[in-house]
Structure formats: structure tokens, C-alpha cells
Amino acid sequence: MSVLQELKEQIRAALPELDMVLGWEQGFDALHMRPLFIRTEKDLERLVLNPLCVHSLATYLPGLLRGAGNDKKVGLVVKGCDSRAVIQLVQEKLIPRDRVVMFGFGCNGIVSLQKLEAGAQGCSGIGSVEFAGDKVVLSAPDTKVELPFAEIRSGKCETCRYHNAIDADHFAGARVEEGAVPAKHPTLEEFEKLPLSERFAFWQEQMRRCVRCYACRNTCPMCVCRDHCIATSRNPHWLTQESSTAENFMFQMIHVMHLTGRCVECGECERACPLDIPLMLLRRSMNGVVRELFAYESGTDPDATPPLLTYQVEEETINERGW
């Protein structure tokens, strides 16, 4: 039985007890999948599972489960990173674990459409995509392009240590073996070698490009303020509506600071950005700080308390008196 079939059977069996299950379906063309809300067995037929299923469905959970008197039970299909988002939300008591059912699987990485399009230059009108082992075959009416999967894999997958969904209620297919990965992402490693002035200039240039559409914020499973975000609130009026470099920078700094110790590096912010601003560089940097200061990895242990949500007179991992 294929992983998809197994997954479908698990969802079919659980569906009567659930209000809906979130998965993915084919979108408007061969390269684009889209989230699918499965409510009936008929909806289930549309479920797909492949490395183009890029979205983190955990993003929908706080909205679906919120509200007094709401007793909805929601299932969702999760990659490793998505399961971390669910766990982190549970840890922060933003969603109740007993109303969430996770359908996990072993993920071998997802596609970066940005990289795929760069690799498939000249191959227009791609009609089908086939994943064959470590190769991807793109077929267009007049051409066929074969690319190594590693070349078009999303940047976030390069340092992923959680290929298998954590704490899943159901698991389809075999577990993926966790290989050795660098502790620090190569892009951050390279970036940190630059002098501070160049790093600042880099971000000035990137922030000028921000269109303030808030796609990064709204795809983020950890951005739960949504309609009450201080970046758009008029009262209090923290930020001006001006789309200048300085204001954009300020918003992105607020975003990254609010994610520190919470970000699960699902990469949704960077994927969603229509201008392809490399936002993960900021996330990785702050996550590195949290790992170093608190020896904490977000969204991996349902029983842990995120370090910035608690307080200890003497932090175990910070040797304050040893200075």
C-alpha cells in the first residue's frame, strides 16, 4: 500500500469522529498544490501527498479551534516541521491537544518552487511533475527536464532533523532515517562571515523590497495575534503605514522577535513572500541564540515550557555568576 493510500485509510477511519481533516489537493496547475479541507469521504478522494505539498496546515488551527463553546475536533496531515508547530501551539496553550488529531508521515523534504523555476528555465507550460527517487522529472508539451531533487529542495530541509512527524496520532508509511546535518545552516554560516556593515546593508536592501502584504505573518503558524497584530493596529499606533525601508524593517524585527524561541523553522514566511525576501536567515539567527542560551528546541517536547514563557532566578544554561 502506498503512503497516500495508507494515509487515506487512516483518515477515512477517523473522519466520523472529526469535524474536518486538513490535507492537500491539486491546485491550478501541476506545480501548485493547495490546502484541502476534508469533511466527507468524497472530499478525501482529492487528497494528494507529494513534495509539492508545501503549506503548513497548522497555521489554520488557532482560527479553527478558537472561541468559547467551540468544541470542534480537527485532524491534519503533518510533515515533521508541521508537527512541531502543533506541539509548540499546544505548549503555549493556544490550542487544546485533545481536539487535534495528527496524521504524520516521513517527509523527505519539500520543493522550493523558486528553485524549481530557476532549474527549469526554458521549460514552459509544465504539465506534469514526477518524483522518482532522488530525481524530479518535469514534462512540458515540447520538453522534458530532469533535475536532482537535492537541487530544488527547500532551503529549510537542508538542516532538518525532524523528518518524521513528532507525537503523531497516526503515522503512514515508513519512518525516514535522520541523517547527519550541519548544526548551523550554510546560508547563515556564510552570512555571519560578512562584516556588520555589509550585513546591515544587505537587510536595508531587502527591507526596501517588502510590500507589507503580511503574507509572512499570516502563513506563520506561530503568528496568532492575526487581526490584532500591533503592526496594523491603529490604537495603539505603533507603526506608521508608510512602506519605507525603516518601517518595513521595524515590522520584520517585531515579527522575528515575537518568534524567538517559538519559531519551528517551517519556512512558511519565506515561501509565502511574493518578493522572495530571505526571512529564514533572521529566524535561523534567533533560533541559534535560543539554542545557545537555553538549550531549547521549539516544538519538540509537548511537556516542555518554552524558555521565554517562563522565568527562573538562575537559568540552568546561563552561567550568570561565572562572568
Binding site: 493547495r34 507589507r212 503574507a215 502563513t219 508608510e242
Partner: peptide, 25 residues
């Protein structure tokens, strides 16, 4: 609208969307 995440990418990139806000800074 179930899958919509309420961001503004569609409207800000749209050639025909013309709504604006006014603020005194």
C-alpha cells in the same frame, strides 16, 4: 474562503486594486 489566510498579497500585487488608507503621522 476556507483556505484563505487573509494576507494582502493578492490585492497589493493587483494592477486594478485601488483602495487606500489615510493616516496622519
Amino acid at each position: 474562503a476556507a483556505i484563505c489566510i487573509s494576507c494582502g498579497a493578492c490585492t497589493y500585487l493587483c494592477p486594478t486594486c485601488y483602495c487606500f488608507n489615510m493616516t496622519d503621522e
